[in-house]
Design a binder for these strands. Structure first.
Lengths: 369, 369
DNA sequence: TTGTAAGCGTTATCAA
DNA sequence: TTGATAACGCTTACAA
């Protein structure tokens, strides 16, 4: 932990000026002899350029931040896993912000951009308030928002399409002959909760199925509460033959409850989750789930940001990621699920997954595949 | 994205010197009137101090890095979840490095400390080579290593105790009357692989059980390969009545294979995993697993680093985290498991978990609980 | 109480 | 080709 050498140290050591040192270190044309002496001194002293000083001068930090509610959330995690390598390949370091679901925290992050500790930000807000819009407009660095933001917001925007996603799931269930398709949602006042509720109604309409209030139950987005909601639902509407769950955790809770109630999955009740997290493949029976493309959204966001960092003034762009349905045992049975192949999480990982897999293996930990 | 104001801008605006601006902004004694003018100007101009300039001057970045193989690995993820809030509370930002299981990358991170973009580093190396030791010795910022490092390495060190961990598991199985306890390990040339293999032999010894090569199979640390290993094992030693798996993913693979083979868990074969990841509670039957305290190790590492950052010159410290056994259905059956209560992952999260849980809920994603 | 000026470690301009 | 020097935005002696 010795005090590190600076270009001054090197300059003295090599008997040249700091300007020459800088030139050599930056590969600018310099006399052979000077180059040698500088490099030799740098080598001997173990010189490493100070990135803070460099940043002050260049006005670039080569750092990018990702702000989400909680890294423990598999959806955000999938994003980080894609974002990290993309940024890294472009020479950026990744900084993580957990906003703890706190709107004020999110706004702080946005204002914090003024401190210039990062060159850009990818953020996934819980909800988009007026405060967000004005903070975004005033942001002192490029921001990419994951999650819908009004057109005029002036930021790059990556969107999921839960509408189509729910539609895929209901079509699938309908195709399997299910007609009493219940919906277990999280809080309606959250962005995803609202979007998924609307999507459910629409999908029913499209299938000419009636909207039946008895078939809808709201809890939160967690397993225990999901289980409770499903119990209530079953008590109220015993003839349910399919459950559309607003995320995978709710679906896991549903599987527990159904098992205890002696209902077979999928024979008696088919179950579909949402987000297609790693858990879906681990569950038993394995869980059919709608992928909203967390990984692809993360990647898209990173790419948008990089592009914007190189190309400051271009029109804001909106990217929408197509949902996909990962069909597994909880709707078609274990046998058939194997024929479908593992078309869920595995696909998501795509090219970005390989390094990670290698990593986990050598580390003796567990990547999830 | 307008160019931000600096103390110069404010100084001109307020008609004072930059020194006065700095003083006011740092709360140093200043005349009332000056304070007012400066604050007013700062407010009007939307001044935000430039953290890069501040860092250059103060020689502190208020950033800390965490380097691990792959954030997608649940073990590391659990660590990040604990590390982040601890650092944040102390005013540090968290920077993530994925080393992709590459030793050279790890060494790069260590050397990179010379760039002074962080004040300290928490790292969890895949293995500890000579190169690591010398890089650690030469590190230009405090480092905390998670994973055993030789005494003289001169860095703070947080250790798991897989020896005791395996012992806990085997005692548990023995107590349930199991005597043919097989071991499914990952590669023996990895740190955890080697440690767990040795621990298995020792635990057998302690129980006066014979070491039987037929009961040991090595694969990697993933589910598919774990499944393969278990198949091989069952073919070779059909009388196995318990499986000790070197991590949870292997154990998940084992559950699949046993299910297909028509062996009941735990009646015919009891299964124990290791690391007690979130997946253990999701599996069916839920998985008894040895917690090596990922979350606690993360927290301990963060605390060691913070302490070291405040208190540069103290003796390196070694913290060892006690393993715990999370008993679930895969060894005692579903009924009994409920009586044990959820003594696994839930406990791990501890006080650090609440904010995260809230976060996930509002976000409509899924924290894992 | 305030202002001037030096310095943190770079990069880049401009003469020499 | 090279060196002296001025920024970058901030903190902090030191003088006034």
């Amino acid at each position: 932990m010795a005090e590190g050498p600076t270009i001054n140290t090197i300059a003295r050591h090599a008997g040249v000026s700091i300007a020459s040192v800088s030139r050599v270190l930056n590969g600018l044309p310099t006399r052979e002899e000077t180059v040698r002496r500088v490099l030799r001194a740098a080598e001997e002293l173990g010189y490493v350029p100070n990135s803070v000083a460099r940043s002050l001068k260049s006005r670039r930090t080569n750092q990018v931040a990702f702000a989400m509610a909680d890294i423990g959330n598999p959806v955000y995690l999938a994003m980080v896993r894609e974002i990290q390598p993309v940024l890294r390949a472009a020479g950026y370091r990744l900084l993580l912000h957990s906003t703890d679901a706190d709107v004020a925290d999110e706004l702080d992050v946005l204002r914090g951009l003024g401190e210039r500790y990062v060159d850009g930000l990818i953020m996934i807000p819980l909800r988009v308030t007026e405060g967000h819009l004005s903070a975004l407009a005033a942001a002192r660095a490029p921001v990419v928002v994951i999650g819908s933001v009004p057109e005029g917001a002036g930021v790059d925007n990556v969107r999921a399409d839960s509408r189509t996603g729910v539609r895929l799931a209901l079509d699938h269930l309908y195709g399997l002959g299910r007609r009493r398709i219940a919906f277990v949602n999280g809080p309606a006042d959250t962005v995803p909760g609202a979007a998924r509720a609307a999507a459910y109604r629409e999908a029913l309409d499209a299938l000419d199925l009636p909207y039946d209030e008895d078939l809808v139950e709201v809890g939160d987005f967690y397993r225990a509460e999901g289980a409770r909601a499903v119990r209530t639902l079953l008590d109220r509407a015993g003839d349910v033959d399919a459950l559309m769950c607003a995320n995978d955790l709710i679906a896991l809770g549903a599987l527990d409850v159904l098992r205890r109630a002696g209902r077979r999955v999928p024979e008696d009740v088919a179950v579909v989750g949402m987000d297609d997290t790693d858990l879906a493949a681990v569950a038993w029976p394995s869980l059919t789930s709608v992928s909203l493309g967390s990984a692809r959204r993360g990647r898209a966001a990173a790419e948008l940001l990089l592009d914007r960092l190189e190309n400051g003034k271009r029109e804001p762009r909106v990217v929408t990621v197509e949902p996909r349905l990962a069909v597994r045992a909880s709707t078609v049975g274990a046998r058939a699920a194997e024929e479908y192949g593992e078309n869920g999480a595995a696909e998501e990982a795509g090219d970005g997954g390989e390094g990670a897999r290698e990593a986990g293996r050598a580390a003796g930990g567990e990547g999830i595949r």
